[in-house]
């Protein structure tokens, strides 16, 4: 990916400069092969919009969400305090992340531990970029039927239902909503550290229940905003052998599907 321009915070600091935003990549965005594509798509958008941003690179640690929600406060505190030290050391003011779990933890839980930042989800930031005219999407067109999956941590937990929908609408994608959406949205099954363990005994998996609902809309793209939801939904589609027919894409990925976005 030679065409991606990514600089670390350490590099900025060495040059004595400050980026406009810090892009918090998170564990999934850094390590998970599927989620790396989302990171790259988002970086592409940032590059196109000419946003000066930095990542922490190898200095970044997990935000601590899975540890805290699994009940391991000790590990959470270790991770969070380490991250806060680092972020404060770099004098970070504004953080953008493509992971709603990192978003929630950094936004709502770090302040009590001494980390006070403006934290924005990447869909909110993209919406800002479009509104400010920094990201030109006027030539974008998408004729495939799309449904939108609210992640719990962006939607119900932080009340952001609009930004992702506004982006889809502003590129003239009509959304076919699932029966359970917005504040009644149905979980993908990954939250609360479920991603990292086998599900308890039941009739079916949570992600299969949700995938079925998405399939029933007839949409060929499931738009999402969370790397964990995306993994879960893709696995869910496999249970119905729909993985070739229906794509699960992050909002950022949808925007770079069409290469007519003009370079700034």
């Amino acid at each position: 990916m030679a065409n991606l321009e990514v600089k670390t915070m350490a590099e900025f600091a060495a040059e004595g400069k400050e980026p406009e935003i810090l892009y918090w990549v998170g564990c999934a965005g850094s390590y998970d092969a599927r989620a790396q594509k989302i990171s790259k798509a988002f970086v592409k958008l940032l590059n196109k919009a000419g946003v000066s941003f930095a990542v922490l690179g190898n200095e970044e640690s997990c935000c601590g969400d899975p540890a805290r929600r699994a009940g391991n406060e000790f590990v959470f505190q270790m991770l969070a305090l380490q991250n806060i030290e680092l972020l404060n050391g770099y004098n970070i003011k504004k953080i953008v992340t493509a992971c709603p779990h990192g978003y929630n933890t950094l936004k709502n839980e770090y302040s009590e531990l001494g980390g006070n930042f403006e934290v924005v989800h990447h869909t909110q930031f993209i919406e800002e970029l479009i509104a400010a005219g920094r990201l030109d999407i006027s030539n974008f067109s998408e004729s495939i039927k799309v449904t939108y999956h609210d992640s719990c941590y962006l939607g119900r937990i932080n009340g952001e239902y609009k930004a992702p929908r506004n982006i889809l609408n502003s590129v003239h994608i009509g959304i076919t909503e699932m029966d359970r959406s917005a504040e009644n949205g149905f979980c993908c099954g990954a939250g609360g550290a479920q991603m990292f363990k086998e599900e308890e005994k039941g009739e079916k998996r949570v992600n299969e229940e949700r995938a079925k609902e998405a399939i029933d809309t007839g949409a060929k793209i499931i738009a999402a905003n969370c790397p964990f939801c995306i993994t879960m939904l893709e696995d869910g589609l496999k249970a119905y052998e729909k993985e070739d027919e229906i794509k699960v894409l992050d909002i950022a990925e949808i925007l770079i599907r069409n290469e007519t976005i003009e370079d700034k």
Binding site: C27, V55, V75, Q82
Partner: peptide, 18 residues
């Protein structure tokens, strides 16, 4: 998480993706 600060035990570096 305790040892490497990552939710998965990984061989590669955190910045390898870019």
């Amino acid at each position: 998480l305790e040892n490497s600060g990552s939710v998965w035990q990984m061989q590669e570096e955190r910045d390898a993706w870019f």
